[in-house]
Design a protein around this nucleic acid. Sequence first.
RNA 1: CGGAGUGUGGCUCAGUCUGGUAGAGCACCGCGUUCGGGACGCGGGGGUCGCAGGUUCAAAUCCUGCCACUCCGACCA
Length: 438
Amino acid sequence: MRLSRYFMPTLREAPADAQIVSHQLMLRAGMVRQEAAGIYAWLPLGLRVLKKIEQVVREEMDRAGAIEILMPTIQLADLWKESGRYDDYGDEMLRILDRGQRELLFGPTAEEVVTDIFRSYVKSYKDLPKNLYNIQWKFRDERRPRFGVMRGREFLMKDAYSFDADEAGARKSYNRMFLAYLNVYARLGLKAVPVKADPGPIGGDLSHEFMILADTGESQVFAHRDLVEMGAPGPDIDWDGDLGPEVARRTSLYAASDEMHDAARFEAMPEDKRMTARGIEVGHIFYFGTKYSAPMKALVTGPDGKDTPVQMGSYGVGVSRLVAAIIEASHDANGIIWPAAAAPFGAVVLNLRAGDAAVDAVCEQAYAALTAAGIDPLYDDRDDRPGAKFAAADLVGIPWQLIVGPKGVAEGVVELKNRATGERQTVPLDAALKAITG
RNA sequence: CGGAGUGUGGCUCAGUCUGGUAGAGCACCGCGUUCGGGACGCGGGGGUCGCAGGUUCAAAUCCUGCCACUCCGACCA
């Protein structure tokens, strides 16, 4: 993409409304524009990042055996009356009447819809397990939206729903999501800690929140250091095998956020293993049994010929929140530092003397080579001063900066800067391209 | 929903106390000089001062009401 033809409205100063660093940087980098409290338009750069994250989530869901669908944003109130939640949900639900005075709502989540889909088609235990997910906009009319897209009213969520014949099966489904989530966050360059969450009325131990560590997080996290440092399981696990031991390895070590914190257990750990940090909740997985399947009569016939409500779980990732969370976890005084998997562009070519034939030629060559290599480069071909280009490149946080100036070109070299480390090397173009393309 | 604050050009803000012809920096347009960390000079365009009422010869400024946004708290699959 040539910057001269792109739409990337960067700001030198952050709008006063933005209080936290991710919000400030998203506005300065021209990623989003606020349209109302907690409601944002996604500009080209922000949309690219959103889609990158979405794709990582999608790939890890698919790998773990979940199947993508797309449910509507607008839902029928009748379904929520069936589950009993229409009245319970309160003012956070945005309720709508259509022209026929039918009660509709903008979905804050999709248990009812997915349960309705499931019950319409699946009747036998032989068709289980199933895990259906979608990545769709949700709306929750928060009393106080804040912190940009971190806590918006409209937000993009990946929500998956598992269906199993019995509790043992549900636990397997849960374990798959548990490990898949760790892989998602690891791919996005984040340190994620699964903490025990309030399981709600169902009880049991099958509810975890995933907190990523960032100094500006909303919650306090207490965890065993070994758990934080353990790393993700990686893609090469046997998703159809017994994931119990792998999950147990990660849930046996202490980890809790403030509301579930057990100070006594924490203090019992060796001091050098105790870790407290700030965290941002970016995922929540949940087993809730027949909470929806029973009232909504999502029944499957078992081997004994009897109908029983299907066992369900739900698994949410805040995709749009992750955009902000990554920035909170990865930035410096000059701007955003994108991990490769979330970066809007793989590299940026900085033409320090647009209009100079020799410099233009090297830039074009670099741009073409990076494009051909699938790096999806941004080319800053604007007629602007070097300082402005450096500042913009740092601000938007693209992993590699390929800096092409007249002096270097005369000597047959370019400069390659790594945004994350700040490391620079002055090398021939070929070497720089090789470094970027791996 | 309780408490606090803020609304002045695209952005950051001054001006409001003490009423008297709407300002600065950045951004934008033109010309020129520049060109390795957000350049400089000259010239230029852009604002019903959140909205509605009221007071006054005169309102960004004083009064009343409303709206929006932000922060703290409560709330939060």
